[in-house]
Design a protein around this nucleic acid. Structure first.
Lengths: 203, 203
DNA sequence: TTGATTCACTAAACACTGTTCAGTAACTTT
DNA sequence: AAAGTTACTGAACAGTGTTTAGTGAATCAA
């Protein structure tokens, strides 16, 4: 038993070390600079060894996506303690955009990377992401319940607000705001956020 | 002179044939399936020949992006003839989203592909895309001039509406709407569009 | 303890990418 | 006809993800 459990521990350790190396490389060079050989080099093993612990690169991708989802959840945490649903919703949105602008790589990994989305529903990162998303939807529902909106279609309200926030971040992350000088982009995002809040107040 | 001009014509022809092959492959297999060798095979030349007509893959990418921008402009064309700025704005938005949902590959190429954005300002596709974007901004300005909004910050209004539309399309294109069953996604997009129109009316 | 078995690991390869370069054969000029 | 230019290609390089055969060490059974 002892040997078996030790081996199990060692296996888990190795997986963790691989992921940690992948994490570091990703943070340093982005997803493009992340490849099997660079991970192998960093942990001082041969590339083939990686495949004894992860089925393929996608599995590492999912694991990294989990880290990104966790980072996002942590970033949004301060909003969860706000009592008033409307204030909570605004704080949540502000933190969401803030997360995207501050950690474009993480955001990219979560929402923009073209990657093995086929069976993501079975992955832990999906569960974590869904929990965060549910919190957002529930906050909108709480606003509806508290009659902050005339509309009662909380699903559409949540989706609409999400689209706006995601649109802002992803235009920024994927560098599609080059028609605006770099200096004004932050200001524009801020103004647009305030505008969507105003717009939401009329819902 | 005759020979020189013939050669020039042949050069242009070859460039067109390469681009046409790239276009077809892109349409069939997406950007992932598009590679130099597949283009070479289709036009029945060696891969090295491609490089006599295009500096590198990026140049082909820009050329394709131009085609995507042209397809988008054509798709949006019906909106341009609408007199009333508010109606024109709504039609424009509807067609924009419609284009993205109908041609996710083109949309991806234009707004989501992580690609050589460094010097895009010097490319034709940028000019074309800017023209379309300017038309959108001008329509918002026309709405402001005609007092359709209380707010006069047309830049922020345009940006906010764009973010929402782009957010909708890109969540769809990059498959981040898996929490909603595939059947309801279209309906949700429609409802959200109507909602943002309602919200804009209150601006 | 010894011989058999399993395990962790790796070198080397394969099949793909984008890209370059030396060489060749045809076309054009003199 | 000789010289020069042009269009093209085979073969290679370097960089990806991934597989496979093999090796030496750890573990197990006797």
């Amino acid at each position: 038993m002892s040997i078996a459990s030790r081996k199990e521990r060692e296996k888990a350790d190795m997986r963790a070390r691989i992921l940690s190396a992948a994490h570091d490389i990703f943070k340093e060079n982005g997803y493009d600079g992340l490849n099997i050989r660079s991970i192998a080099e960093r942990i001082e093993y041969s590339p083939a060894t990686i495949y004894l612990y992860y089925k393929d690169k996608n599995e590492i991708f999912f694991a990294l996506q989990y880290e990104a989802a966790a980072a996002k959840r942590d970033h949004l945490l301060p909003a969860t303690t706000i009592e008033d649903p409307w204030e909570r919703l605004i704080a949540f949105g502000r933190l969401y955009v803030d997360f995207g602008l501050k950690h474009p790589d993480w955001y990219d990994l979560l929402f923009l990377t073209r990657a093995p989305m086929e069976h993501i529903e079975n992955q832990e990162c999906w569960t974590l992401g869904m929990a965060t998303h549910s919190f957002f939807v529930e906050t909108v529902e709480a606003c509806v319940a508290a009659r902050y909106f005339k509309s009662t279609d909380s699903a559409t309200i949540a989706y609409t607000l999400w689209c706006h926030a995601h649109g802002m971040v992803s235009l920024f992350v994927r560098e599609r705001m080059r028609m605006y000088p770099a200096e004004v982009r932050g200001e524009l995002a801020k103004k647009s956020f305030e505008m969507i809040v105003k717009m939401a107040e009329s819902l």
